[in-house]
Design a protein around this nucleic acid. Structure first.
Lengths: 312, 312
DNA sequence: GGCATATTGTTGACTGAGTCAACTATTTTG
DNA sequence: CAAAATAGTTGACTCAGTCAACAATATGCC
């Protein structure tokens, strides 16, 4: 199984281009909706940024919105002349001015903002609740994947499980391990069984699931299940590739340890495979000790299973 | 459980607007990439349409791309003067002209087309294979949900299962039945178990799964499993709301019946619940007979389970 | 058939949006 | 401290699109 990134297929490229054409057109339609307002699309974008990002310099604004400095300069002069914006010289840098909206500017922006929100609301109201959920989810995914990596200002949150989660987790782990390690679909089946058993026998007092979510997108999860009164088991730890490097795996493991301690378990145990190097590092760092290893043939591969224990 | 569509939440509206801002910026960046070419973005869009949609009238072109008729007229005149396009009077309508690219026009378009594809390929090559898959998938979802309904020229295809499918099916059914009927997460667990058992014990000679896919998006599925040498069982039939009304449910059922007959089963049986009216209609239409009903409490609801049989 | 109305495509006059290069004032870097 | 980079401004320009008016043709309706 190669880890080399393969070239994008022509079909994928065509799919993305088709989407670009589609959305170019869609944005064109959105702009028409704002036509009756006193502001152009670009002016509206500038007002939006000023309203939401507080004092910024003109250069930042231009970079953020991809605008020409000269064009922006004139636009801002116009805003200033109409009393919509205020500029205060920067203390740090004698060349810069900090821009912000005046009350009048805010008042001018508000109807625009409302109209834009109303327009989006109209579009959304044609969809069912579930479709809306999928739409925003899909948009988030596109934004994450196209945008330049996870921006620091979007932290993940941990929440308990709800309908749809366990299927999603099986789906993602099934695809992920098939891609990264060439495991076959029986691995996905195993994940589905474990997660289903968790839901079916769920004992809230002694068990828990943590779903890590970033911008509505699931980026990781872990399950803690009761094995006996004394022993708890950590299962199905996983972190999305897009969220790796944030310490999320460690965080999820810590949550499990803290919960297990709190509920009076004496041992926390887990089963993993030696090929999962990143996971092993996390367990070691949190104090787990390798207690057993055995060869097995699963998921279409010869693997070495490992049991790790932590005395609480 | 209400079926009334609820209003979109502020959070959803904000998510969509944020995506619109993001993609406006993204498209702006794409355009800059084409700056060195001899054509503007609009010209490139027109060329693209001409190259891919064959002969069209100017009015159609304008509608498709959202362009002003006057502007388009001049643009086309320019193309004609440079020998890029050909216009032949329409036979049906004396006012219209059919536009198409000349060889020279095609030759002029090709490098543009290549550059655009290369630009997208560069962006995609930064992603892993799985991320690319998710990206195109998410774009498809956005396009379906925002676009005006499923266009007739995008048929579904049926394919066998592969890694990621059974988790996805549990995920979607879990969410769908929670929304539509208020069933709790134990239903999703049941789906996951059934699908997992299918994968684990899969006998290709006597069992099969059909996944209906449209533009790379799963829109329905069904499983046929061996119950005994004589009896096959149809399980987990489901159709996405966005694909309802295409007769997909009926088609999937027919596939099961045909396969069961072919493999020498004598009876095809299935279990469902009386609240699932749409499914019942399909089973009745295909000749299934209700053979048993029983009350049960599952998925957090009081339900009436039904067993339907079809003699093959 | 005939008239009102709509549609296709064209043109002139115009504006809005953005580009480009040159410039000053300031800050950063080697 | 000199050279290079950055923030912001301005003049001259182009490109993209709008608007209104118009001729030619097509469609609906009595």
């Amino acid at each position: 199984m190669s880890h080399m990134p393969k070239l994008p297929t022509d079909e994928q490229i065509e799919r993305v281009r088709s989407f670009n054409r589609f959305y170019t057109r869609h944005i064109g339609l959105l702009n028409e909706g704002l036509l009756e307002s006193a502001f152009s699309l670009t002016e509206a974008r500038v007002l939006y940024e000023l309203a939401h990002r507080g004092p910024v310099t003109a250069a930042d604004l231009g970079r953020e919105l991809g605008l020409d400095a000269g064009y922006l300069s004139r636009l801002l002069k116009r805003f200033g002349a109409h009393g919509l914006t205020r500029r205060t010289p920067s203390k740090d840098d004698g060349r810069q001015f900090l821009l912000s909206l005046t009350d009048k500017g805010l008042a001018a922006f508000e109807p625009l903002n409302q109209a834009s929100a109303a327009q989006v609301a109209t579009m959304l109201s044609r969809l069912s609740a579930g479709e809306r959920e999928r739409l925003t989810q899909a948009m988030t995914t596109v934004e994450h994947l196209i945008g330049d990596g996870p921006r620091p200002d979007r932290p993940y949150i941990l929440r308990p499980h709800r309908p749809g989660d366990i299927g999603w987790i099986a789906h993602r782990q099934g695809i992920l391990y098939a891609q990264e390690y060439g495991w076959d679909e029986t691995f996905e089946a195993l994940v589905a069984e474990i997660a289903a058993a968790f839901v079916r026998n769920f004992d809230p007092a002694r068990e828990r699931c943590w779903i890590a979510e970033r911008d509505g997108e699931i980026v990781g999860s872990v399950f803690l299940v009761r094995s006996s009164d004394e022993v708890a088991k950590l299962r199905l730890l996983y972190v999305e590739p897009s969220a790796r490097g944030l310490g999320l795996g460690g965080r999820l493991t810590e949550e499990c340890i803290a919960f297990a301690r709190d509920r009076g378990y004496r041992t926390l145990t887990l089963w993993t495979n030696d090929v999962l190097v990143a996971a092993r590092r996390i367990y070691q760092a949190k104090g787990f000790r390798l207690v057993k290893e055995e060869q097995h043939h699963s998921f279409g591969k010869d693997l070495v299973g490992q049991t790790w224990d932590l005395v609480l």
